[in-house]
Computed example of a mutant assay.
Amino acid sequence: MKLSDFVVSDAILVDLQATGKEEAIREIVGSLAKAGRLAEGDLESVSRAILGREELGSTGIGQGVAVPHTRHPTVNRLIGTVALSRRGVDFAALDGEPVDILFLLISPPNQPGDHLRALENISRHLKDERFVSFLRQAKTRENVVDLLEEADQGTS
């Protein structure tokens, strides 16, 4: 599975405005709606589902990275996006540091395999210091898309 299989390019945010976890999640979910991948009427329930997952334990995995995710019946295929924060988001990350790279993922409840494969793919790329460094330097949506495509080149 490649990042391009599920990342919605039109929803990528390179200057996330929110500085708190809940606002950040709502802003990112909103970007998926603006890109036409979620219905406006589903924004609240999807945001609540992701926040509910966060209550089980923060998806702020440390080193400035968070991977908020959920399964939700309003999507019929795996979708996700990337958000970059210039200010940092207080995400209650495991290391207590602010988060500046967020990969958000939503999948249908009946496709747990795809959900897990996508999480594994994201985490593998986020272990690559070069990838993370270039992602932090990305200034435009096109920069992020190019980085994701380059990362996909090494994915079978």
Rank of each mutant, 00 (worst) to 15 (best):
residue 118 A to D: 02
residue 90 D to Y: 06
residue 89 V to T: 05
residue 151 A to W: 00
residue 125 H to F: 03
residue 50 I to T: 07
residue 45 S to H: 13
residue 31 S to H: 05
residue 24 A to S: 14
residue 56 L to C: 05
residue 57 G to N: 04
residue 31 S to C: 05
residue 121 N to S: 07
residue 85 S to G: 09
residue 4 S to T: 15
residue 111 Q to W: 03
residue 60 G to S: 02
residue 99 V to A: 02
residue 57 G to V: 01
residue 116 L to W: 04
residue 53 R to L: 04
residue 134 F to S: 12
residue 61 I to A: 02
residue 35 A to I: 10
residue 21 K to C: 00
residue 1 M to W: 03
residue 49 A to D: 07
residue 120 E to I: 00
residue 109 P to T: 15
residue 43 L to V: 08
residue 49 A to T: 11
residue 74 T to N: 10
residue 18 A to D: 13
residue 25 I to A: 05
residue 144 V to C: 07
residue 65 V to D: 07
residue 112 P to D: 10
residue 127 K to F: 00
residue 42 D to Q: 15
residue 46 V to Q: 04
residue 118 A to M: 03
residue 118 A to Q: 03
residue 101 I to N: 06
residue 31 S to N: 05
residue 108 P to Y: 04
residue 13 L to T: 10
residue 53 R to K: 13
residue 71 R to V: 08
residue 142 E to V: 10
residue 34 K to P: 00
residue 144 V to K: 11
residue 46 V to D: 01
residue 8 V to H: 00
residue 72 H to K: 15
residue 151 A to R: 01
residue 95 D to S: 04
residue 17 Q to N: 08
residue 104 L to M: 12
residue 44 E to A: 14
residue 114 D to T: 10
residue 9 S to L: 08
residue 95 D to R: 08
residue 139 K to T: 08
residue 4 S to M: 14
residue 78 L to Y: 13
residue 125 H to R: 13
residue 16 L to D: 06
residue 117 R to A: 14
residue 89 V to H: 00
residue 137 Q to N: 14
residue 90 D to P: 00
residue 14 V to F: 15
residue 26 R to H: 05
residue 72 H to Q: 14
residue 121 N to V: 05
residue 37 R to G: 03
residue 102 L to K: 03
residue 96 G to H: 06
residue 5 D to R: 09
residue 106 I to Q: 08
residue 120 E to A: 12
residue 98 P to I: 12
residue 17 Q to L: 11
residue 100 D to L: 02
residue 84 L to V: 07
residue 61 I to M: 05
residue 124 R to C: 00
residue 73 P to G: 12
residue 86 R to K: 06
residue 59 T to N: 06
residue 22 E to C: 02
residue 135 L to D: 05
residue 107 S to L: 11
residue 143 N to D: 13
residue 74 T to K: 13
residue 132 V to C: 02
residue 66 A to Y: 01
residue 26 R to Y: 10
residue 14 V to M: 13
residue 126 L to K: 02
residue 66 A to H: 00
residue 59 T to F: 03
residue 145 V to A: 04
residue 64 G to Y: 03
residue 77 R to A: 11
residue 119 L to I: 09
residue 15 D to F: 09
residue 71 R to S: 12
residue 120 E to T: 01
residue 151 A to N: 01
residue 123 S to N: 06
residue 36 G to V: 06
residue 101 I to F: 03
residue 92 A to C: 08
